[in-house]
């Protein structure tokens, strides 16, 4: 039994490594289709990370919506526009941009060290472990109970937001007759 305790931790490091690798590839790949496929891989492994954190519902939704719908949109648009691979040579590092990256990195380091210093209890598993969730009726049940009580209004607003997005998409992407005539 003791010999197998390292398995979840090893899994975490393997998954994180794959996430990092694929995120770098998303940004660094020349061909947009390659980027999109690596984005799918990235999202898939992030979902695996969620599953390891006992957030099964979120993991499933992540793959279903993110990988299965949003990135498909990207792939479609790239294919329809028939984009050529980018030339990566023309990239210039301006001082301001480098500064932005440095400041962000510094911010993460500060917040992270602060978090590590002031939150000593975070390593102990909370009540959302698999056993506790099993008792409460499963991850989906727990999420739903909270979602439809405390977060009911945001939830309804989210549906309005989606409706707005649909209308906006149709209006923006529709062929403008006045432009094509002139």
């Amino acid at each position: 039994m003791e010999a197998l305790y390292f398995v979840p931790e090893m899994l975490f490091y393997v998954i994180s490594g794959l996430i990092l690798l694929s995120s770098i590839m998303v940004v660094a790949a020349r061909n947009p289709v390659t980027s999109a496929i690596f984005l799918v891989v990235d999202l898939f492994f992030v979902a695996a990370l969620y599953a390891q954190l006992d957030a099964h519902f979120t993991a499933a939704i992540q793959v279903l919506v993110y990988a299965g719908a949003i990135v498909v949109l990207f792939v479609f648009v790239i294919m329809i526009l028939n984009l050529k691979p980018d030339a990566l040579r023309g990239i210039r590092f301006s001082l301001g941009e480098a500064l932005v990256l440095l400041i962000t990195l510094a911010g993460f380091v500060i917040v992270g060290s602060e978090l590590a210093r002031t939150a000593p209890d975070l390593t102990t598993p909370g009540n959302l472990g698999s056993a506790a969730i099993e008792m409460a009726g499963g991850n989906t049940y727990v999420v739903a109970m909270r979602m439809f009580t405390a977060f009911l209004w945001p939830f309804e607003m989210a549906s309005v937001l989606i409706l707005l997005a649909i209308v906006a998409c149709v209006m923006i992407a529709k062929k403008d007759k006045r432009v094509t005539k002139s």
Partner: peptide, 15 residues
Amino acid sequence: DVGFLFIFAISSLAV
């Protein structure tokens, strides 16, 4: 416990 969603999530990757 989310077998249903799992099936839809994974089969949406076939696209």
